[in-house]
Computed example of a mutant assay.
Amino acid sequence: MKAAHVWFRIAFSLLIAVATTACGAGQAQPPASPAVPQQPATDQSAGQSEPAYPTRQIEYIVPYSAGGGVDLVARAAADYVSKEWGQPIVVVNKPGGGGTVGAEYALKQAKPDGYTVLAVNVSNTTMLTAGMKDSLITSNDQIYTARIGKGTMAFAVKEDAPWNDFHAFSQWAKENPDQLTWTSVGPAGFSAFGVAQWFDMIDADFAKTRMIVTKGASDSVPKVAGGHAVVAIHTIGEINPMLQAKKVKILAVGGTERSPFLPDVPTAKEQGIDGLTVFWWTGVSFPKGTPEAVIKKWEAVVAKMTSDPDFVKKLHELQVEPAYADSAQFTADVEKETQYYTDLATKSNIRK
């Protein structure tokens, strides 16, 4: 019995030794966990683990024709961000419907995964909502992510037009509203609100004027240069190519101060027409449901971009001023502007 007991202790000790060796040199190990699927690549640049973004090409939708202000700023931004992130960002022009065709594609048809971004601007947001009771695109469809830049409103007429100052032109327009033709992407576009505010300030009959629909500034300004419309109201940058070619002339700019890009051109206020506050802006937005991490990453890159001297130089070449606003400020500005333009549209009978 004693011998059997000894052999039992020896065998038990051997079993313990084998088990200990298998678990790793005598260290206690936790029980094995069940296999888990491999997690996707993550982005920890913000100090937290997030799904990597972007990992492939991004479409930057411009809802206007190539060559206009929104398009040119979008291309400069796409170039900057693609280099910053190491992924291609391709600008895709989808003009039509006063900016609604491209906006509807980006905000309603594309997946809210961050790989389709909208070049949002004043015409297809606040003005569109103000001008149409049943707008196809509203603020409820999108997340205003970051504003990039702003532009000063300018009034351009044909180079050999008989007016040499804005006061005389305004007097003629007031007396002959039925002869005033102006270009716009639609009845709720930037130009339409520019004309409506101008006529409100000079107490003229906006309803008697006639709009000529175009696909954007690159189509609009040449129409004025060719004598197919009397006036084009766009940003300085959008008018500048035809201005430099001496095909059109700018009679006035909006705002309270002269533009740094056209210091010799007086404001409308200097010429006795006060209250022209309409201004142009552009930025980026995404459809509702887009991951917050995507929104934050775009906020950060636009903030960096608009403070980068090289990018600011590119904006200045387009006669656009940097005007960064994060998502919260951007959204608040849009809400305030929408209310103002809705009141103006109602008063001018633009709202349909």
Rank of each mutant, 00 (worst) to 15 (best):
V320A: 05
P54N: 06
T338G: 15
P31H: 11
E175K: 15
A77H: 02
D310L: 13
D264W: 02
V101A: 14
A161N: 08
G24Y: 04
L136Y: 11
K2W: 03
A146D: 03
W182L: 07
D200E: 15
Y53A: 09
S45P: 05
I239F: 03
A229R: 10
K94C: 02
K296R: 12
I137T: 15
V81G: 04
G67S: 09
A32Q: 13
V253H: 09
S307F: 00
E257V: 13
Q48W: 02
S13H: 00
Q39K: 15
Y324C: 11
K174G: 12
L128A: 04
A22K: 12
G69V: 04
Q44W: 13
G67Q: 08
Y144P: 00
K314G: 00
K111E: 11
Q44S: 12
P112H: 03
G97Q: 03
Y80I: 11
G114C: 01
K314D: 09
H5R: 12
V294E: 00
P241C: 10
T346W: 00
Q27G: 02
H167W: 01
Y80T: 11
M127L: 15
F190E: 01
A74I: 05
T331V: 04
F311A: 08
P162K: 11
I61K: 09
R75N: 09
T277I: 12
Q44D: 12
F330C: 05
G194W: 08
G275D: 10
K83F: 01
T42S: 14
S184C: 10
V120F: 07
D113M: 05
G227M: 14
V120K: 06
T346R: 06
V117Q: 03
D203V: 01
V120Y: 06
N124D: 14
G186P: 11
P266F: 09
A192M: 07
K83P: 00
G254C: 13
V265Y: 05
F190N: 02
G131K: 12
P162D: 04
A323R: 01
K150W: 00
L107Q: 09
K314C: 01
A3Q: 12
I239A: 13
I233W: 08
M127A: 07
E50D: 10
V36E: 09
I89T: 04
G114Q: 02
V231R: 13
T126C: 09
K174I: 02
L262Q: 03
T235F: 03
P291T: 08
I89C: 04
N124A: 04
L318D: 03
G226I: 12
